[in-house]
Structures are given as C-alpha cells and as structure tokens.
C-alpha cells in the first residue's frame, strides 16, 4: 500500500495511542506479514510468535515514524530482521531445547498474548530446515541463500516495488533484481515437476 492520506491519518492516530487505529493496521498487514514470516521460517508457530514480536516493535517505535519512507517497507524491514534473528538463534539452539526454554525475547512481556503451544509446535523439528509442516515450496525455499529467499518473498508478499525492496534490503537496485531473478530461477528448477503439473 502506498502512503495515502488515509494511511497517514491512520498512523497519526496510532501514534497518538488510538487503539482502534492499531486494529486497522493489524487488519491491513497481519496476514501478509504472517505469510512472509511463515515462508522465511517454515513454521506456523514461529511465524505467530514473530508476528506478535513485530507488533510489539511497531507499538514502541511508531511514535518515531515520520512518513519519510513507506510504512509497508518499514513493517517488512522489521519482519525481515526478526526472521533473520530467529533463524540465527535456531541454528545455535541445541536440538533438545524446547520452545519454552528459548532465551528471553523482546516479546516476552507480551507472553499473555500467546496461547499455550500445541503438541505439534512443541515437537522437535518444527523449523524450516526439517520441513515438518512445509509444502514443496517451503522445502525449496530452505535451500536458497537467505538474501535470495528474502527478496523473492518480499516481492511476493508486499506491494513494494523493487526500488523499495532494494532500500529495505540495503542493497543497490541491480543487486535486488539479480537476487530475485536467481532465486526464482532456482525455485522453478527445483520445483519443475510440481510447477509443470
């Protein structure tokens, strides 16, 4: 979504602490951000946790948002960082550690938002690398380099132009385009049978 007057007004109301404005922002962006986080992490449970953490950051940081860049770009930038950090931690976490033993996170103060994790979420191997609840695309995504995966998914879930995606990624436009093209080509090759059916 481009920065319309309505959106600016909405953000301004949220900055003033109007909870109904936040409701609208959640309705506008939660689904796409969730899909993006799910595709980057490969786990519904992780995507849910990260989505909550994302809105924690939005509530805290929105008062400093000044409309000089698109709100959507900012939201997806936070989502990208959260997913990156989550994947780093997952790499370092011993496999026996359960989800309840994860280090304290920024969203811990919001723990009451969360419902008890179900049995499937607690089972080991819920992360993308193990592909438990992943479809074919998810497993193919897991084998892409992170920058290619991020650009392809940013393009897929956001309404951003490549120029905006390049800004979010902190790369030149040509780099973002090349990564998207390489990533899509690899994905199609990996899913050739699936895609041609």
């Amino acid at each position: 979504m481009k920065e319309t007057a309505d959106l600016r007004n909405l953000v301004e109301r949220a900055r003033q602490g109007d909870p109904t404005a936040y409701d609208v922002l959640v309705d506008l962006y939660a689904n796409r951000l969730y899909g993006f986080l799910y595709r980057l992490t490969g786990s519904r449970t992780d995507a849910e946790d990260l989505l909550q953490d994302l809105f924690v950051r939005v509530v805290r940081m929105l008062p400093r948002y000044e409309h000089r860049s698109a709100l959507e770009g900012w939201l997806f930038r936070i989502a990208t960082n959260l997913a990156r950090d989550h994947i780093r931690r997952a790499r370092r976490t011993p496999p026996t550690l359960s989800i309840h033993e994860e280090p304290e996170t920024e969203g811990d103060r919001f723990r009451t938002w969360r419902q008890p994790a179900d049995a499937s979420a607690q089972a080991p191997g819920h992360r993308m690398e193990r592909g438990e609840d992943a479809d074919a695309l998810q497993q193919a995504l897991a084998s892409l380099p992170a920058p290619e995966r991020e650009v392809v998914m940013l393009r897929h879930f956001s309404d951003m132009t490549f120029a905006e995606i390049a800004e979010v990624m902190g790369t030149p436009l040509g780099t973002a385009l090349a990564r998207a093209h390489r990533g899509l080509t690899k994905l199609r090759r990996m899913l050739a049978g699936d895609a041609d059916s």
Binding site: P19, Y22, G35, Q52, F55, F110, W113, D135, A180, T185
Partner: peptide, 30 residues
C-alpha cells in the same frame, strides 16, 4: 514472467484468534 507461478503455493492465512490476541495486547501496551 516467473513470479506469477509462485501463486500456486499460497501461504496459510493468519489465525483470526491470533489477530485478536495481538489487538488485545496492543491495547494493553498502549
């Protein structure tokens, strides 16, 4: 020419209950 093909693989929608929890959490935080 390539990206439209990704639409064959829709991501799951966010759980409405989660959306409600997020909204309630935001209200508390505000």
């Amino acid at each position: 020419a390539q990206e439209h093909w990704l639409k064959r693989y829709p991501a799951p929608d966010v759980d409405p209950a989660l959306v409600d929890r997020i909204k309630r959490g935001i209200r508390r935080e505000v």
